[in-house]
Amino acid sequence: MIEVNNLNFSYTKNPFIEDMNFIVQSGEIFGFLGPSGAGKSTIQKILTGLITTYKGNVKVNNIEVKRHDSSFYENIGVDFEFPSLYEKLTSRENMVFFSSLYKKRQDIDTLLESVGLLKDADKKVSDFSKGMKSRLNFIKALVHDPQLLFLDEPTAGLDPSNSRRMKDIILQQKAMGKTILLTTHNMYDATELCDHVAFIADGKLRALDTPRNLIMSRGAAKVSYTYMCNGKEVRNEALLNSIGNDNMLQKLMQENKLLSIHSSEPTLNDIFVELTGRALQ
């Protein structure tokens, strides 16, 4: 679906995106993780054909992006981080206009209903809250039922229930066979949604694997437990894969003296810090 070979690009004379290579398979959710300014949005701009002055090869749906024509966008849906909506129009008018630009169209009321905006369909976008605009912006990318979706921070600024709703729609789209490129610095969203995750820092690809492999490759999960000793709470840790050798833990369990016990895996953020020396958030 997407093939990137030896991609190089810079806005200035100094190198920025350097020697980037990756493949996104059809039907997967591929996440770009990195802090602000890492180059995630620039890669998205290259993949969506907004920047065509790159070096190397970038193929989307078997089309070299720098040689795309307008039909290229019939099968691509883009949800930018910031809403791109006509503020003076209602949400329905916005959807009707944007869907009119494509050959294939989905039912607008069904889309509005899917993000809980049907009751606000005739309300002007200028009267919408930030979260409502984000939801409308998201379904705008689905209006022509594209096979490939570029989502930039789709859950940013949403309350937990709407964030859940959006993530469910993303998973639903994946189940329908869509390919999704998710740009985020939210490690929890990436861990939950992505089949593969690429770590981007300073314009370079630092790691690429499944979230599980990335987590497991950086040390086994740990179990931490606490107990009382001489009137004080003591905390101990044991590796999950050698928990049977921890005599203290076994003793405490037999005597029912454990105060608490937790398992803890490293997060994608921990791994990102370890690899790049920088935090995601």
Partner: peptide, 17 residues
């Protein structure tokens, strides 16, 4: 300001359009 310009560039309208 409303980010419409960059969005229309990734629709069949395109940047040239």
């Amino acid at each position: 300001d409303e980010n419409i310009a960059s969005f229309l560039a990734v629709t069949p309208v395109g940047k040239k359009g």
